[in-house]
Amino acid sequence: MALLNFKKDDGPVAGTLSPEVETFLQGYSIEVMPRTAEKVADFRAILPKGTRVYIAHIEGTPIEDMVATAKRLNADGFPVMPHFPARIIKDAATLKDWVARYQGEANVDQALLLAGGVDKPYGDFHSSMQLLESGAFDAAGFKRLHVAGHPEGNKDIDPDGSMKNVEEALHWKQKFSETTDAQMALATQFAFEAGPIIAWADSLKAAGVDLPVHIGIAGPAKLQTMIKFAIACGVGPSLRVLQRRAKDVTKLLMPFEPADVISQLAAHKAANPDFNIAQVHFFPLGGIKTNANWAIQNGGRSAVPANQ
């Protein structure tokens, strides 16, 4: 497949997989952690203006580091969406304190709510639904709330491999979206095949869940790195894409890029305008700069850095 189509003299934003991909990547978001954000001297040199930046809250990260990262990104003109992992939030007072800190110090008005990756809750919360029910975000006037989506299921929620509990949670979140003033959307785990993603997104609509989907895409990374993260994050059957590639020694040392899955999703979106995948959300497994540069090279006008 021909990946790049350069137009002479168009500069660094000219390479694009296709016009459909350029449209599909418009308004993409990306995820950072405080320690990875520290390695980026200037986000404005690599990210488009207005890019939503999620800040992943890993167990053990001090809230002070999270807020400082949010403050820096907000000052650079990027809307910030910090994670609120329910299972590491001790109680309602802690939740209220975090909301107040983000809002007061970093002008944050949006959040990703999720259960979190720890087995045993620190305190009173164990699910994103409890965080929503707390009323803390509505009381603070948060304008956007995202919740997790799992195109290939989630073994933490459904150990038997079914999607029963995941589906029940989605219906609950759909109903909640009708009672809150905040805009809601699903931000998903990454997967490596377009077919299962399309089938899952279509099944949501058929089941009456019309929350916009921000589809998780793993940014370019070494194959070994990609496999490690995919297993740790519970990626489902689409892991076979990586496993097949690992058997090809000629490709083993080459970085794995998201060209195929993005191209297929973009083509499906172009052919089906009512397709409910609204945006791409990048997990920069190979590094923030690597991911942003891939978008610049392949996303055309959708990925022009803010300072250009």
Rank of each mutant, 00 (worst) to 15 (best):
P258M: 05
H57A: 12
H150I: 11
P305H: 06
E105M: 09
K120G: 00
F229Y: 14
H281P: 03
C233P: 02
D274C: 05
E22Y: 06
P82N: 05
L186R: 04
Q297F: 13
I63G: 00
S128Q: 13
A86I: 08
V67D: 11
V147G: 00
V209P: 00
S203N: 11
D119H: 09
M33F: 11
E59S: 05
K247C: 00
A75K: 14
G236M: 01
N154T: 03
D210V: 11
K269C: 02
P85L: 05
F6G: 02
K175Q: 14
P151V: 06
P79W: 02
A259N: 12
D42H: 12
E178D: 15
G219I: 08
E193R: 12
P284M: 09
L131Y: 06
D138V: 04
D138L: 00
D97L: 11
A306F: 09
A140S: 13
I277V: 15
V280D: 12
L17T: 13
M226P: 02
A199K: 14
P237Y: 00
A169D: 10
A218M: 15
V249L: 12
D274A: 15
T250V: 04
K222S: 09
V304I: 15
A75D: 08
N74L: 03
F142K: 09
A100V: 06
S128N: 10
A199W: 04
E193A: 15
I288T: 13
A221Q: 01
K205L: 13
P62C: 03
D158W: 11
Q297W: 06
K8C: 01
F137K: 11
V21Y: 09
G123N: 09
D109F: 07
V32D: 00
L211S: 05
L253F: 15
G135V: 04
A185D: 09
H268T: 06
G15K: 07
I217A: 09
A194Q: 10
D260G: 02
L242R: 08
Y54G: 01
Q189Y: 08
S238I: 01
E168S: 12
V249W: 13
D138E: 15
I215F: 06
A232W: 07
K49I: 00
A106H: 00
F256H: 15
A270Q: 11
P258H: 10
T69C: 11
A100K: 15
L145Y: 06
I262K: 01
H83A: 10
M1Q: 07
A303C: 14
D248R: 13
I89P: 01
F6V: 10
A232K: 13
S263I: 00
A169Y: 06
Q308W: 08
I227C: 03
A267F: 02
K164H: 13
V241I: 14
A115L: 04
K247R: 13
I227L: 15
K251P: 01
I215N: 04
Y122D: 09
N276Q: 12
E31S: 01
F125N: 02
R72S: 07
V147M: 07
T69I: 03
